[in-house]
Amino acid sequence: MSAALRLVLFDVDGTLVDSQGDIVASMTAAFGALGHPVPPRDAVLGIVGLSLPEAMARLAPGLGPDIHAQMVAAYKDSYVALRATKGVASSPLYPGALAALQALAGRDDVLLGVATGKSRRGLDALFDSHGLRGTFVTEQVADHHPSKPHPSMVLTAMAETGVEPRDTVVIGDTVFDMEMAQAAGVHGIGVGWGYHPRTQLQARAASVIDGFDALPAALDRIWGAGA
């Protein structure tokens, strides 16, 4: 009897790539374009992982949907411009990320996926810059789902791959990722190098790792070593 397929779903910003510089710069541009005070850096990084409309609503709850929509457009314009100027330096891969992806992709029993608050356009541009096209068999983006922590991205990824919840793991750096995993009935592994405090992740994750070299052991603990 063949082993069950496992699905590993990665968040992107703060998990695979460090995009905080461009995120903060683009949020600053978005608020500045509409003449509103820029939120503190910690507040901006605290909403990473949410879809942009939800992020704007949380950062500027006193403003209406029309203003939020204008901020979203200004943010996207700034982010695209920064990416065009900086290239791959716009969102560098974290140390060990590429090796971890390659190792998991080489396993016959593991499928890789993405569940991200990025748009389709943003994810495609990122994958092109890092040569990651074809690495993931399922790619869930903000264009087609409610914002995290709604479980839609995870549920759709499982439906596309045919993998059961018990064999599915979400890896992310934010509370929203871990809450999304819980809502979908799957496992969550937090990463300690991202944008939300480790203490917040520990309350919701099966484990929190501090480097990609710790990921195989964390997955073994969930699935059972050698299972």
Rank of each mutant, 00 (worst) to 15 (best):
V191W: 02
R133M: 13
P61A: 01
A225N: 02
I222H: 02
D18A: 11
E160F: 06
P216Y: 06
R133T: 15
D124W: 11
D213F: 15
R221T: 12
G87H: 08
P65N: 02
H150C: 06
A60W: 10
L101M: 15
P146M: 08
G172A: 06
T116Q: 07
P151G: 06
V169I: 01
P39H: 08
G64Q: 07
T156S: 11
A214N: 11
R6L: 12
A157W: 05
A218Y: 00
G96T: 08
P61C: 04
S51L: 09
T174Y: 06
V175R: 06
S19K: 06
Q182G: 12
M56Q: 11
T161L: 06
K148W: 04
T28L: 02
T28S: 04
A142W: 01
V44T: 13
F127A: 14
L16P: 02
A97K: 04
E164C: 12
A30I: 03
V154C: 04
S91M: 14
A89K: 14
V110C: 13
R120L: 14
A33C: 08
G21E: 13
I222V: 07
L111D: 06
V169W: 01
G211N: 14
M178T: 04
R58E: 13
V208M: 05
T15Q: 05
G21R: 15
I47N: 01
D18I: 04
G188D: 11
T161Q: 05
A203R: 13
K86Y: 14
G211V: 13
L9T: 03
T85F: 10
I171K: 00
P149R: 03
W223A: 07
I222C: 01
A105Y: 01
R6E: 02
E160Q: 13
G96D: 04
Q102K: 14
L126D: 04
G35S: 11
L52T: 09
V154H: 03
L50C: 09
A181W: 03
I23R: 01
D13K: 03
S119D: 08
T161W: 05
Q140C: 05
L112F: 15
A60K: 10
R198P: 03
L215C: 03
G49W: 07
V88H: 12
S90R: 08
I171R: 00
G188T: 09
V208S: 06
T15R: 00
H196I: 03
R58W: 09
V88G: 05
K86C: 13
G224C: 02
Q20I: 13
R133Q: 15
H196D: 06
A183R: 10
F176Y: 15
R198G: 04
F10M: 10
E139N: 01
H196T: 07
P53G: 13
T135C: 12
L201M: 07
L45T: 09
D128C: 14
E160C: 05
G211H: 15
A29P: 00
A157Q: 09
S26M: 00
G64H: 07
Q140K: 05
R198A: 11
Q70F: 12
P40S: 13
P149I: 07
V191C: 07
I189R: 02
S207K: 09
G172W: 02
K76T: 15
